[in-house]
């Protein structure tokens, strides 16, 4: 499993930080951050399998539906709140981003870039895109809110989030030339304006 995005996220997070990982899956990101950077924090996961895997990975995980909000977390309780490849499957995208800004000093979001050229090509040819970052067919995808890098930038502006850093990556490396066209995964770092 190539997780360049995890590597990038790790490089942004200061050692000893308090981190909340929303939609933490099996918890490997937090487990890695805890081991390498001594971060403390929690994962939030709705799925039973993910919760169990997180416990097996030694991660403090809280079973909760992100759509129900982050009311169990106090304002500013974390240095970083991460939402890794989860945003696109959420109903209330704006709500969760606002909650991230409330409970964390900084937010980090990664999402599949719909503007990636292969996706555009698929649509031009008359089909919904299927790719490595969007592996599902249109009829069985959990993804309901797909966006491009530019779209996400706009939403950040709308919710008064200052973008501190943004990278677009593809196949494990950063794309600097025409990122919204050539990159398949957007990685944003932002904070309250």
């Amino acid at each position: 499993m190539q997780r360049f995005d995890f590597q990038l996220i790790a490089s942004w997070i200061a050692p000893g930080s308090r981190v909340l990982d929303l939609g933490c899956g099996d918890g490997v990101l937090l487990a890695g951050l805890a081991a390498t950077q001594g971060v403390q924090g929690y994962g939030v996961e709705i799925d039973d399998t993910g919760v169990l895997a997180s416990v097996k990975n030694g991660v403090n995980v809280i079973q909760r539906d992100l759509e129900a909000g982050l009311s169990i977390f106090e304002d500013g309780a974390f240095d970083f709140v991460i939402l890794s490849q989860t945003l696109q499957a959420m109903r209330n995208v704006e709500g969760v981003l606002r909650e991230m800004l409330r409970v964390g000093r900084e937010g980090i979001v990664t999402f599949p870039n719909f503007g990636y050229w292969r996706h555009r090509l698929d649509v031009l040819q008359g089909y919904m895109p299927v790719s490595k970052t969007l592996p599902h067919s249109w009829y069985d995808t959990p993804n309901i809110h797909l966006c491009t890098v530019k779209d996400f930038r706009d939403l950040c502006r709308k919710i008064d989030a200052n973008i501190l850093d943004e990278r677009v990556i593809h196949a494990g490396r950063q794309v600097t030339v025409l990122p919204n066209l050539r990159g398949s995964l957007g990685v944003f770092r932002f904070r309250r304006a």
Binding site: Q7, L29, A31, G32, A34, A35, T36, G58, V59, G172
Partner: peptide
């Protein structure tokens, strides 16, 4: 399998990746 062992696997993955990169 301790959390540290798990983390080490993740770390190795990250390192291995850097190498390929």
């Amino acid at each position: 399998r301790s959390p540290l062992a798990v983390a080490q696997t993740v770390l190795e993955e990250m390192r291995g990746y850097r190498k390929t990169e």
